[in-house]
C-alpha cells in the first residue's frame, strides 16, 4: 500500500518542489540566520543567569570578565537553599499560588457561565464594565486597597489572596465566557427539560467540558501569584513573604552587598517551575490567550 502511494504521489509532487526550492534558497538561509541570531538574543539572559549561578565569587568579579566558570560551582545552589529559609518562602509561594489559582479559576468560571448562558437585566452594561476594568491598571487600586486592609488589620495575613480569588478576574471571566458561549444550547435545553437547575448544569455539564480552559486559567493565575512582587511586598512581613520578595532582597554577603552568584542560583530555581509549566501547557495557554486577545 505505502509503496503504491508513494509512486503515485511522486509525479505530482516532484515537478513543483524543485522550482520552489530553486527560487528561494538565499531567502531561506537569510531567514534562518536572522532567526538564529534573534534566538540567541532572547535565550542569552537565561544562559548568562545559569553561567553566573555556576561561578565562584572571584570568577564573577574577575576583570576582564570570564564567560565560562572554570569548574561549575554547584554549591551556589545548595547555598541558595540554606542561606535564607528558602523552603519556608517556597511553601508560602506555593500555598498562595494554589489558593488563589483554585479560587479565582472557580469564581471566574461561574461568572463567565453567567455572562455566556444566562439572561439578566443589565447584563450588557455589566459586561462592558467588566471589559473596561480589564483596562484599569491594578496598581491604581492596589495601594488604596493596601491602606484599607492595613486599617482593617488584614495586612500580614493571607486573607487578601482569598478575597482576590473569590472576586474573579475579568480577564479569566472573559476567557471562560468566550468558551461557554460557543457550546451548543441543546445540551442545557435537554438538562432543563430533565429538571436540572443551572447550578447543576454548570457543575456537571459545563465545567467537565471546559477542562482545557480550566487548565489555562489555573496555569495563568498560578504563575501570576508565583511571579507577583508588589502585593507580597506590600501586604506581607519579611518572614511571611513569598519567594519572589525573598530572592529579590535577602541574599546578602557579610558586608550587606548583594550576593550575586547565589542570588542567580536562587533566581534560576525560582523561574524553572514557571518555564516548565509553560513549556508543558504552551499549546493550551496560547490558545486561551489568543482566543481572548483576538476578540478583545
Amino acid at each position: 500500500m505505502t509503496m503504491t502511494k508513494t509512486t503515485i504521489a511522486a509525479p505530482t509532487v516532484s515537478p513543483r518542489r524543485p522550482t520552489r526550492r530553486r527560487r528561494r534558497p538565499a531567502r531561506t538561509a537569510g531567514a534562518y540566520l536572522l532567526l538564529i541570531t534573534l534566538a540567541m538574543l532572547f535565550a542569552g539572559p537565561f544562559v548568562w543567569l545559569v553561567l553566573a549561578a555556576l561561578k565562584t565569587k572571584a570568577e564573577w568579579v574577575a576583570i576582564p570578565a570570564k564567560i565560562l566558570p572554570e569548574t561549575p560551582r554547584w554549591e551556589n545552589f545548595t547555598q541558595a537553599l540554606t542561606e535564607i529559609n528558602f523552603p519556608a518562602y517556597l511553601g508560602n509561594s506555593l500555598f498562595l499560588s494554589f489558593l488563589f489559582a483554585i479560587l479565582v479559576t472557580f469564581s471566574s468560571a461561574a461568572v463567565g457561565f453567567g455572562f455566556a448562558r444566562l439572561r439578566g437585566r443589565g447584563k450588557r452594561p455589566l459586561f462592558v464594565l467588566l471589559l473596561s476594568t480589564m483596562m484599569l491598571p491594578q496598581i491604581l487600586t492596589l495601594i488604596p486597597t493596601y491602606v484599607m486592609f492595613a486599617r482593617a488589620g488584614l495586612v500580614n495575613t493571607y486573607w487578601p489572596w482569598v478575597v482576590w480569588g473569590l472576586a474573579a478576574s475579568p480577564f479569566l471571566v472573559f476567557m471562560f465566557r468566550q468558551f461557554f458561549a460557543a457550546i451548543p444550547a441543546e445540551l442545557e435545553d435537554a438538562a432543563i427539560i430533565d429538571g436540572c437547575g443551572y447550578g447543576r448544569i454548570f457543575l456537571q455539564i459545563f465545567l467537565p467540558l471546559s477542562r482545557p480552559v480550566l487548565l489555562t486559567s489555573f496555569v495563568l493565575s498560578f504563575t501570576w501569584t508565583w511571579g507577583d512582587y508588589i502585593a507580597p511586598a506590600l501586604f506581607l512581613d519579611p518572614d511571611q513573604t513569598t519567594l519572589s520578595v525573598a530572592i529579590s532582597a535577602f541574599y546578602l554577603d557579610p558586608h550587606g552587598n548583594p550576593d550575586a552568584t547565589v542570588q542567580a542560583a536562587a533566581a534560576a530555581l525560582y523561574v524553572m517551575p514557571v518555564l516548565a509549566i509553560f513549556l508543558f501547557a504552551q499549546r493550551y495557554f496560547i490558545r486561551g490567550v489568543v482566543s481572548s486577545g483576538l476578540k478583545g
Binding site: T223, G227, D228, Y229, I247, S248
Partner: peptide, 10 residues
C-alpha cells in the same frame, strides 16, 4: 512569562 523579579535579577 518570566516573573518580574527574576527578569530584574537576570
Amino acid at each position: 512569562v518570566v516573573p518580574v523579579v527574576a527578569m530584574a535579577i537576570m
